[in-house]
Design a binder for these strands. Structure first.
Lengths: 198, 198
DNA sequence: CCGAAGTGGATATGACATATCCGCTTATGT
DNA sequence: ACATAAGCGGATATGTCATATCCACTTCGG
């Protein structure tokens, strides 16, 4: 591993932190399509300063989101320890989507199927794997319908994400409602068999 | 009303149809961000020819989608005649989303909250109004939960739309699954009150 | 067969993001 | 204090891309 940390001058390191903080805010608010000029300006720095530390926007985004995503992966891993697999999955998804709710950049990164670094891709796979285990276990426990698979997770996350993008009225968080609705739909319902509407 | 149809030369009218047909296909396949150059080329025409008939992309898109959207509105209106309001709403949404499924441009138009013509906006409002009636009636009939409102329709449509945008595996149409899941979640469940999971 | 209508597509225009360059400033250690 | 490497700012070069126009040429239709 060619680990090179050329030891930055103190002010330079400070500006690096400012850049990261500004990028955090700007990406969270306006998404990954925000420009590095936007980020630099928001940090009160010149563009050149930002480009000195990060070769391009992708590198900056990865510096920010690799950690965040891995935190989410760790949460998923931790969820595996829960007794009730369904409840663990539910809690994990709610946690992960809470992160996404406050960070448009993260949302875009989660949703983006392609064009990302190995690092991010591997983390994503890790998350999916955990979800797979949880679903398998929930099925064993009889709390999730048999026809549900891991493949359903990504679409569900996408659906909830899309609601977050909606210019919805103010402070409420309608996504929680819909997540609850959908997750409830995944449940096995032995009591509710063959019900007819009329 | 300044209705002006300057009577086109026969070849010109033909090319106008070609343009509309090409735009239909291109917008359906690649969405509204496709350029008029794309459309013209796909129609086997020069760009100038397209611009001669349609001042800009928006006008072309409206020429195509005003009718489509109004058809959907008509379907919604017709749904009001159904006995079972819940079932009518379900059938309508499935119908409307079937249209959206095969037309990315339509999807984008439906989802776009703003920046559209009065015409389109009014049609959309009409659709929403019909859905409102259906929901109100379904609640009376006790087939839909009390806490559901018209405001839930747009997010639901958005969610399903977002699944359609996913580069999902081939020919299957997972959106039907999710629509069914969500709509089932809207149902009143008198049999399923206060159920505890453990 | 003439003139109005239509056509094509190269290209002007304008927006915009990315990334660089270089004269000036600042930190650091001796 | 000073020398010097490191860092800084931000104007600007570069590249990409969509929109829309223009005009020499062709075709329609009476």
């Amino acid at each position: 591993m060619s680990e090179e940390t050329p030891v930055l001058r103190r002010d330079a390191e400070h500006n690096r932190q400012r850049t990261l903080a500004a990028a955090q805010e700007v990406f969270a608010a306006r998404g990954l399509q925000a420009t590095l000029n936007d980020v630099a300006h928001h940090a009160g720095l010149g563009v050149g300063t930002v480009y000195r530390r990060f070769p391009n926007k992708e590198a900056l985004a990865e510096a920010i989101y690799a950690g965040k995503l891995d935190d989410i992966r760790a949460t998923a891993q931790a969820a595996l320890a829960g007794q009730d697999a369904y409840e663990a999955l539910r809690a994990f998804l709610e946690h992960a989507l809470e992160q996404a709710a406050t960070d448009r950049g993260l949302r875009e990164l989660i949703r983006r199927g392609t064009g990302e670094s190995k690092q991010i891709a591997r983390t994503r796979e890790g998350i999916v794997e955990c979800c797979g285990c949880l679903i398998a276990r929930a099925k064993e426990q009889g709390t999730v319908r048999d026809d549900i698979t891991v493949g359903d997770i990504a679409p569900i996350v996408t659906m909830i994400d899309s609601v977050m993008d909606l210019p919805s009225a103010g402070a409420v968080q309608p996504w929680r409602r819909y997540l609850a609705l959908i997750l409830d739909g995944l449940r096995a319902r032995p009591d509710h068999r063959g019900q007819r509407s009329s």
